Each structure stands twice: as C-alpha cells, then as structure tokens.
Simulated scan of single mutants.
Amino acid sequence: MKKKELGFVGSVEQLAYVRSSVLSDGAGRGNRIIDVNTGGGLQFTIHPDRGMDIVECSFLGINMVYRSGGGTRSRLEYQPLGTEWLRSFQGGLLTGCGMRNAGVASGECGVHGRLSNTAAEDVSVSREWEGEQYVIRIRGVLREYRMFGEDLRLVRNITCIDQSNIITIEDEVENLAGQTDYLQMLYHCNFGYPLISPAVRLEAPEHTVEARDADAAAGIAVWNQMPAPVPGAVEQCFYHDFKDTAEMTLNNSELKIKATVRCDTAELPRMVQWKLFDHGNYVMGIEPTNTRISGRENEIAKKIARAIAPGEKIKFRMQIEFASTK
C-alpha cells in the first residue's frame, strides 16, 4: 500500500501483519515462531529457535514447500554426529546449513552443520515506512562458538514489503576468533507439492550443469523435470554454476505459479539442485551455496574452502520470489 491509502484502513494490519507466538504442543513445544502476511498473497513463518529458518510458506493459499515426515521439531533433539541431522530436519522454505560445514558429514562436523539447530538471540521485528514503502524486517543473531575454538557470529535480516511477494535474506558473518576459520554456507530451499509435480519445469539463464555422482548422471538429461513419485527412488544432486546472475525458477504450468530463487554470485556462485521423487519424499531443493557439499575437511584439503580471517565480515544475500503467471 501507499501512504495515501492510509485513510482507507484503521490499521496497516488490515493488509499486512507480523505476529509472534510460541508453540504449545508436540515435538516443537516451546519454539518461538513469527508469522508474516505480506498482503499480496504470500504468507510464511520464521522459526527463531531453529536458526531463523523459514519453514511454512504459502502463496495465494497454496502450499509451496516440502515438509519432512517428522514435522516441527525442537532444536534440543539435535544430534550433531554423522547423518543424525536428518532426525530433526523440518524441511520448509529455507533451512540454513553451516556455518563450518555444509554438505556431507566431515570429522567432528555432522551433515549440514549446526546452524539450523541454533537458537537466535536479539530477535526483533520492525514495521516502518521507508519512503512510500511499508517494510517488514525480522532480525536475529546466531552464534557458533566453542571455547578455545571457533567463534562465528551471524546477523540475519529477513525483509519484505507489503503487497509484495519477495522475501530478501541478508546474512553477515563475522569471525570473532583469533584464528582463521573456514566458512561454508548453504541456503537449503525445499519446494514441495503441489508446486512441485510433473507439471513443473526448472528454468534458468545459460550456465553449466554438473552431476554430483552416478545417480545424478543417470538423470542429467531431464534435470529440469520432475516425474511422479517412484517408491525407492534415490536423490539426485546437480551443481549449477553461474557467471553473472544466479537465478532458478520453478514454473508450474497447471497451477500458473512460479517460484524464483536468486542470489548474489560474489559469495554464492553456485546453486545445488536437490531432486528427490521418492514416495512420501517428493521435493525439489534449490540451494545457493559457496561449497560443493563434499565436506569441510575435503574442501580445506583441496584449497577450495572459503577462508574467513579474524575480524573479517562476509555478506550473503538471496531472494525468493513468488508470482502468478495467469
């Protein structure tokens, strides 16, 4: 809305609102959540106690995301070693992976690191007029710390404008320790049914596509398509490397809805595509990242891990946009 329209409403909350609450039942009991309604057809929920992840999301009343069978989970269930991360994986629009490992388990770092199972502090919500735009901003601070070891501080800002259907995620990571560390970040965007169906196509500007392994190589000719669920199907992962604009769009011709993930390539030069069409595990992940998800120790040894010096700050920026194609 514009300021000149204020005379038509008693409160801006008629058109766009933010609402904070605490879950009272189930495995996620006690989790803080923040519901956002932009007034343009987009609704989503932020989970500050789960790494400031964005979990639930709908557009025009239609679900956009994949949710894992475990549903909403408490971070207190987190088990860090090996693949135990999967026990508390919630799915949803954005699962943060990092900060010291994103990808396969590596040494003391389990799959996808600790970020999604870290509680945010200094959480705040602001709703302000910036010129003619009514801007909603949710901020939270996340720490990965060990005495005599790592000390990484992440400040996340999630921003949207009323009547708009774009979510902007901006992270700033600072190394507060006295020694150089290695920073791995992956923004695990998990899209699901009904957006993801055989009617969806994955579209992108010209770029390179690489299969991660033999399973992915078997499906590389149809990387941009999604079959119906196949019981026992195994996941396929593809690396998408971009020169200029990193952007991928899921376009569903039946729903007449599309979802676009875009990011700045300065620090997020690559997107990993996670394609899984197993029965009950039907998901297309679009994942901006600065890694090759091959594990922290492996990437340090190959000298491809992103170093972060003491006192250095690194910024990441990405957007998720929804639109009707009717």
Rank of each mutant, 00 (worst) to 15 (best):
V135L: 12
Y78H: 11
G82H: 12
Q133N: 14
L183V: 00
D162E: 15
E150M: 13
I138P: 05
R127A: 08
I161N: 01
G178I: 03
R137G: 06
T83P: 06
V155E: 14
S126R: 13
V123P: 01
V111S: 04
R137Q: 05
Q184K: 15
E121N: 07
I167S: 02
Y182G: 02
N157K: 13
T118S: 15
Y134R: 01
A119L: 03
G96W: 06
I167R: 00
D181K: 00
M147H: 15
Y193W: 11
G98N: 14
D162C: 15
I138T: 13
L152I: 04
L115W: 08
G113N: 02
R87C: 11
R114C: 02
Y193A: 03
D151G: 09
G178M: 05
R87Q: 09
N165H: 08
G192P: 14
V173T: 02
F191E: 08
N117G: 07
E121F: 09
L115K: 08
I169N: 00
D151V: 10
S124K: 04
Y134G: 04
E84A: 14
C97A: 04
L115A: 14
T180C: 06
G178L: 14
R75S: 15
L186N: 00
I158A: 06
Y193P: 05
C109D: 05
S106K: 07
V141C: 03
Q133Y: 13
Y134C: 01
L142P: 01
T168E: 15
P194S: 05
Q179W: 12
S124G: 09
E132C: 07
L115M: 13
N117H: 14
S88F: 11
S164H: 05
Q163H: 11
R127L: 15
F89H: 09
F191Y: 12
P194E: 09
P80H: 09
N190H: 05
F148I: 06
D181F: 00
V111T: 06
R137C: 08
D162P: 05
E130N: 15
G178S: 14
L152P: 02
L76A: 14
R75E: 07
A119S: 10
E128I: 15
L94F: 01
L186R: 02
Y145L: 08
P80N: 11
L94Y: 01
